[in-house]
Design a protein around this nucleic acid. Structure first.
Lengths: 254, 254
DNA sequence: AGCTGTGAACGTGTTCACAGCA
DNA sequence: TGCTGTGAACACGTTCACAGCT
């Protein structure tokens, strides 16, 4: 999973396990689709199939929210949509700022799933002055100088970092100082944040490497060097090039 | 965690736990940075800090790979880089195709971390004929018609789906039919694939919803309706709009 | 009869704490 | 002395299987 939490070491936020929280959006999406097709009720079996999980897990997940089903029948689609939305905090609108309007930032700004699910793009922010005023997804890009003012004025508590890795920690610090307490980080860096700030990470390169691992396993039940004798020490195969975005943080950033 | 596995229900691929595999890329990145700074050795404590995990976990993780450290000293940076790369299958090059060259696809194509870590963009593919031939990140976009030929010619086993949700399953089916066995899916859809094909999912909207959940908790130790009496049933707060990319799959796609 | 809700069993992942080696 | 490597304890997550309600 392309993710990482930050603090709250082992404290389930309040009853609902983290793993369940991570699946609620999945259920919500499936339920929304059913709702659009005006399906009135759904069984745990059907809904689980649509969400790509097994039905026992789904029922257990829902049991943490309460008893919202009807035995012998299933779940009322509309009611569940409401309950899950409420649990996730989507009945209110969350203003979000996106920092770093390159290809990725633009992709995020254009992403339709945003607006429809309780999130509103409050501002697009970029350090490049020549970007300022240029509309992306209908929203004019603003300069980094405005960052603090925007966050305070709009009461933004969620920030998205889509900058190069080298700028990420700096941006993060400014976001946090201005009052942001949840960060979605697309830069390939470990961010350090104070307690009470949540960070989730999306890292493409990590996902690919995990796939490569499994891919290797599939192919490799033949010409593999086995597990016993390790190859010669201190061999360098490929230059350790981190790419243009690779400014990885120092050993102890904070 | 923005991720999802597909099959291999409870089978640890071969000794190395899945959770450990997911962290290896993190260690690798931190080690690569140390390597660039010509740091010769590193302790579990230092490396763990750089990777954002605790040192006990890191040592346990490494213990699954073998005994690559030196007691009283630490780990040889170069050697570890090599071992982890090998374990992840990054000592070979993985050709990758990216399907769907919108903003997101372009962002992925331009992503530097790709090329440097054993991944090579073999082709960019889009369904829009007017895109054909246009270079993105220096690589000419090819039409979907070419998909099968490209995959077979280049021996591509990893595919990235960056299309709208409505096209994702179709693209996925074609990729798999042509021989792709690992898929990284950015479309907000549950893909169904045959056994033996790995799917990992990256879903922006899900990440934001998880953040919103925690954000709500932070703010909500005051005006919350508590946990006892649930609000009126079957209330619809916001129109269940899934956005322009929202073609969610039928209840039982396969 | 059918489907939910859940205790109990199981498996995976994390943390502790220290033995063992350089 | 200092750090790794790891058994043992613990916490978390998943699955099973069935009691209980409609």
């Amino acid at each position: 999973m392309a993710t990482g939490r930050a603090h709250r070491p082992a404290t389930r936020s309040r009853g609902i396990p983290e793993a369940t929280v991570a699946r609620l959006p999945l259920y919500l999406r499936a339920l929304t689709a059913l709702s659009e097709r005006s399906v009135p009720t759904v069984s745990s079996e059907e809904l689980a199939a649509a969400a790509g999980v097994n039905s026992a897990k789904l029922r257990k997940d829902f049991s943490y929210l309460g008893s919202y089903g009807t035995r012998g029948v299933g779940y009322d689609v509309e009611y569940l949509v409401y309950q899950i939305s409420r649990e996730l905090g989507l009945t209110q609108d969350w203003p979000v700022v996106i920092v770093g309007i390159g290809n990725l930032g633009a992709a995020l700004a254009n992403y339709g799933g945003f607006a429809s699910r309780g999130f509103r793009v409050a501002a697009l922010i970029d350090a490049d002055p020549s970007m300022a005023g240029k509309p992306v997804a209908g929203i004019p890009v603003q300069h980094t100088d405005e960052l603090e003012a925007i966050i305070r004025n709009d009461g933004v508590s969620i920030g998205v970092i889509a900058t190069p890795a080298g700028a990420a920690q700096q941006v993060c610090d400014r976001l946090v100082a201005a009052g942001v307490t949840s960060i979605l980080n697309f830069a390939p860096t470990v961010l350090s944040v104070p307690d009470g700030v949540d960070v989730r990470k999306v890292d493409l390169s990590i996902e690919l490497q995990i796939l490569a691992f499994h891919e290797q396993r599939k192919a490799g039940e033949e010409a593999t060097s086995g597990g016993a004798a390790p190859p010669p020490p201190a061999v360098r195969t490929r230059p350790a090039d981190d790419g243009p975005d690779g400014e990885v943080p120092a050993v102890m950033p904070a």
